[in-house]
Amino acid sequence: MALILLEKSDAIATITLNRPEAMNALSHALRGELFAACQDISQDQNIRAVIVTGAGERAFTAGLDLKELGEQGLGAATDQNPARNPCRALESLNVPVIGAINGVAITGGFELALACDVRIASTNARFADTHARVGIIPGWGLSQKLSRFIGLSRACELSFTGQFLDAQTACDWGLVNHVYAPDDLMPKARALAADMASIDPEFLKAYKQLIFDGYDRNFKEAMALEKQTTDAWNANVTAEEVEQRRLAVIARGRALKD
Rank of each mutant, 00 (worst) to 15 (best):
D258A: 15
F160M: 14
L69A: 13
P187Q: 04
E111L: 01
L175P: 05
A121P: 01
A76Y: 00
A206H: 11
C116F: 01
W233E: 10
D200P: 11
K227G: 11
L17W: 10
N18L: 03
L146S: 06
G70L: 01
E241F: 07
D40F: 02
L17M: 09
A248Q: 08
A197Y: 02
G32M: 01
I47N: 06
E221V: 11
D40L: 08
N236D: 12
A37Q: 06
G162Y: 02
R48L: 05
E226R: 13
Q72H: 04
A59S: 14
L152K: 12
N124A: 05
S147P: 12
N234T: 11
A83N: 12
I98K: 06
D258R: 13
D184K: 07
A155L: 03
H178L: 13
D195L: 10
A76T: 06
K220I: 13
V50D: 01
L64E: 01
K208E: 13
M1T: 12
T230A: 15
K67G: 08
L74D: 04
A167R: 02
L90R: 03
F212R: 12
N46F: 06
R31E: 04
S198G: 08
W140M: 07
H28G: 05
T123L: 07
R84Q: 11
K205V: 11
A11I: 04
